[in-house]
């Protein structure tokens, strides 16, 4: 073998800077990537440790899910019925979705498919600005403006109720949903639109038959993210819902939400007390529902993907 080749093959065992840099980066991104598992596990362990004590000793599933009597501070006879809180959160989130889904999907379709040039850019910036408004500001709007508006328009004694919190929460979730939905529409290749238009499809036909089906995954993700956002939002529902324990008969009734209850009461409880652990049980419930929503989203998207792969050679 000639000496040059011999010298080069000696490099095979020499680990230079590039090799170590590669190793270091590999380890670093591995830690970054897997830390998500660590955090989720950690949060779950923490919540479970605090809440599970209650679940195994005091917890009465019948009372928790069946009673509206949330009286954690009663000295003689504390009861932990979370039904009204669950219904409160569900009704506000539900109304918020009724407000925000059509609104934000329409906005996304307009920005993504109809608006052109400067109009489009301006709208996008505005929507992103809206998304950046802190939730306490939205809560304030609900508490002051929306409150008196509802009292005036519907002639009801109090304007802090499901309607108020639902609308405010819907408006708050809409910009994020719009942005994500618009990203999903933008990810649909222009070639699809062109091909469909060439077939003689109208713009709406193109959107309905081609663009929306192609963007379905992203649109579902946008909606579910909005649901998750509404579910976990605290400040707005605390300020705009009336915060009173109640099974609502109509949107004009005040309610109290799970998150708002935790936020409002946690500071006043003794660490380790039954009340404290009952609040953690609410936390577990929130955690499980959010987890279920995400799991559902994931399954739906997998389902869509699998269906597409049917008949693959």
């Amino acid at each position: 073998m000639n000496p040059q080749a011999l010298a080069r093959s000696r490099d095979f065992d020499h680990r230079g800077r590039a090799w170590y840099a590669d190793r270091a980066v590999t380890v670093f991104v591995f830690i970054g990537g897997t830390s998500a598992i660590l955090f989720i596990g950690g949060i779950f362990a923490f919540i479970a440790r605090e809440g599970l004590g209650f679940v195994f000793t005091e917890f009465d599933a019948g009372e928790f899910f069946g009673s509206i009597a949330w009286r954690p501070t009663s000295a003689l006879d504390a009861t932990y019925g979370a039904l009204a809180l669950i219904v409160g959160t569900a009704s506000i989130t539900g109304l918020a979705m009724v407000v925000s889904i059509p609104f934000s999907l329409a906005a996304a379709v307009f920005i993504g498919e109809f608006a052109r040039g400067r109009v489009r850019e301006t709208l996008k910036v505005l929507v992103e600005l809206l998304a950046a408004i802190p939730s306490v500001v939205w809560g304030f709007i609900g508490f002051s403006i929306m409150n008196s508006l509802i009292i005036d328009v519907f002639d009801v004694p109090i304007g802090l109720n499901v309607l108020n919190a639902g609308i405010i929460l819907g408006l708050m979730a809409a910009p994020i949903m719009t942005t994500i939905a618009e990203d999903a529409l933008k990810a649909v290749p222009d070639g699809y639109r062109e091909a469909a238009e060439a077939l003689g499809a109208t713009r709406w036909q193109v959107i309905r038959k081609v663009v929306i089906p192609a963007a379905k995954n992203g649109l579902v993700a946008a909606v579910l993210l909005g649901v998750g956002r509404g579910f976990g939002e605290t400040m707005v529902v605390l300020m705009a819902s009336g915060h009173s324990i109640n099974l609502p008969d109509s949107v004009f009734d005040s309610v109290r939400a799970l998150t708002a209850t935790i936020a409002a009461e946690l500071g006043e409880t003794a660490v380790g007390s039954d009340h404290f652990r009952a609040l953690f049980t609410l936390g577990i419930l929130l955690f499980l529902v959010t987890f279920a929503i995400n799991l559902a989203a994931d399954t739906i998207m997998r389902g869509i993907r699998r269906k597409g792969e049917r008949g693959r050679p």
Binding site: V188, P189, G191, Y192, E194, A195, A196, E197, A198, L199, G200, A201, T202, K209, V210, P213, A214
Partner: peptide, 20 residues
Amino acid sequence: VYALRSRIGVVFPLPVGLPL
């Protein structure tokens, strides 16, 4: 214009299979 386009078939250089 949609009626006009529907009478004109177009085949693009790179195939555009619609996501259907």
